[in-house]
Design a protein around this nucleic acid. Structure first.
Lengths: 335, 335
DNA sequence: CTGTTAGCGCATTCAT
DNA sequence: ATGAATGCGCTAACAG
């Protein structure tokens, strides 16, 4: 049986209240008895029960993170940002990975049952009003990352702007036939980033008086392999694009792969730009749109902690900047 | 204020014991009252306090994972294996990322204070006897992944064998001058995998009557960039190696980069083999040593759960298989 | 300054 | 089958 605060109290000849006070650095203890209690604690190798503290404090002292596909490089980087600030706090980090809609719903629900987490960060998952209502009535502060809700604090990047910038980069190089490779319009999790990036692309095209050939829009399951296949489809077209904008770096890698398979030189014969600027992109010299992944995690915790401490809803909408990083996969089109 | 079991009891006109019983599917409740209680629970939108349950049960219902550099692709893959089985259990997953020795020690200690986790998985970190003793006296089951301790259950791969196989693959292709790029001999966390892989390499060399030129051993901070620099050093040698074995895929990528910078053809002029078989390796056609990362996480939880349920130490040492995957970065040397 | 006591919300005897 | 009482280990309010 673990040693409790009572054991310490008895051994030190004081009341449990006093022991609790020294535990919590309450100044209302004479330094004399404090020393004595501390000694006993040391000698008995006492550690307060975290669970008991939580029950008494009515706090779980842990914050949850709900992520989709937490092995995706971009998500990992966000997690790292989150972990880095939680590590310095009094909170524990509970991670929930979701890869199916049912698992998502289960997580949404379980985190709303009170006493599971003091706060929640949701990455890339769009909660329904119903979910938001549950969290609200359970009094669980939530901050969203890479997704939006009218009543919740959100950390986002302007994907439309990102898509716009990527496309504009291509246009300024002289490209007019630009293909797009992204996620399906309707995904199980209703991701909107790919759609928004495409939207940004369309706007850029329009602003520069360029038409968009619907055949240049290829969407399929997120992933390198799928992107590779889609790229071939694009390249099979009669008047195939001279540049391709991929909705993510991972997909851009698939584009690169397809080009290589066909012996198409990048960037001489085909320009490619990705999105995310994951670590591998630097290695592969991929021109891409950088978004502050790590910082997004960082900021989300800041907001959450603030929200927990002040119980202030703070329906902030923080938009982080994006910019294209020009590397070696984009160039002027031939001719 | 959250609704408690008392509220439900009063509302349903029963005792709290009965409510608790229906909550836990205890059969000793008439289906009649069970229905009534269930209705009230529904109506009041009652959710039992997880914290209170834990205190009463004397279980934290959460298991902790301690990982070094949890953003490294190999670690992420292990985490995914771990998460996949925990998600189906009653436990929550608490993640602790360590990037400094002091943080490691802090985590080792805090997880040993009872009532933080019901069990712990430690990845790639070698605990000292002192740490192990702390966990033992706190009654916290621990299983190690990718690291060893005499008294703890461990999931490992035979890195020596992996290094041996990688080298043998090269030797059989006809290489005799084989370079090695790995981590420093002494790292902050005393990693041994790189050392063991090198050890395996040496044995293979020896078994095949090949001598090893000490200048062919280059070690430096783990990472692509460092590996790139070290490779140049190797290639600057008078009688430079015709093949390089890197202690990890990440480092192998650095090797590839250096070769490219020098205009050296891989595999025609230089063969390269990595270790881990992370996702990117397939993309880059890297010949490498595959180790079951995901499974290692899976198995560790199995062992831990077993250990928790039976309080059986089970000092198992499970060794997972490795094998080289031959892709396109290795070939016969050109004379 | 310090001891005592009453919760925190649930599980679990022990009677009935 | 079910209600009442007790304990889990700690914090905080209240006396003194």
């Amino acid at each position: 049986m673990p040693v409790t605060i009572y054991d310490v109290a008895k051994e030190a000849g004081v009341g449990v209240g006093t022991v609790s006070r020294v535990l919590n650095n309450n100044p209302r203890v004479s330094s004399e008895t404090r020393q004595r209690v501390l000694q006993v604690i040391e000698r008995l190798n006492f550690h307060p029960s975290s669970i008991a503290q939580r029950l008494s404090l009515r706090k779980t002292l842990s914050i949850g993170v709900l992520a989709v596909y937490f092995t995706r490089p971009s998500v990992v980087e966000r997690l790292r940002g989150i972990e880095s600030v939680i590590a310095d706090s009094e909170y524990d980090l509970m991670v929930y990975n979701v890869e199916t809609p049912s698992r998502r719903d289960e997580c949404f629900r379980s985190t709303a049952s009170s006493s599971r987490v003091d706060g929640l960060i949701v990455i890339s998952l769009a909660p329904a009003d119903e979910d938001v209502g549950r969290w609200a009535s359970a009094g669980v502060p939530v901050v969203l990352v890479d997704t939006l809700h009218p009543t919740l604090p959100c950390i986002i990047v302007d994907d439309i702007s990102g898509g716009y910038k990527a496309t504009e980069h291509l246009i300024k190089l002289g490209h007019t036939r630009i293909g797009f490779i992204g996620d399906p319009i309707h995904t199980a999790f209703n991701f909107r980033s790919s759609r928004d990036r495409f939207e940004g692309m369309c706007r850029a095209l329009k602003d520069h008086g360029l038409a968009f050939d619907p055949a240049f829009h290829q969407a399929g399951e997120h992933g390198r392999e799928s992107a590779r296949v889609l790229t071939h489809r694009l390249l099979d077209l009669d008047d195939s694009p001279t540049a391709i904008f991929a909705a993510s770096d991972t997909q851009a890698f698939g584009v690169l792969q397809a080009a290589k398979e066909r012996g198409i030189q990048v960037p001489q014969e085909l320009s490619v730009v990705g999105y995310d600027d994951v670590e591998m992109s630097e290695y592969l010299n991929l021109t891409t749109v950088h978004q502050p992944l790590f910082d997004s995690g960082l900021r989300s915790v800041d907001l959450l902690l603030h929200s927990i401490d002040t119980s202030d809803p703070a329906p902030v909408r923080e938009q982080l900047p994006v910019h294209v990083i020009e590397r070696s996969t984009t160039a002027r089109p031939k001719n």
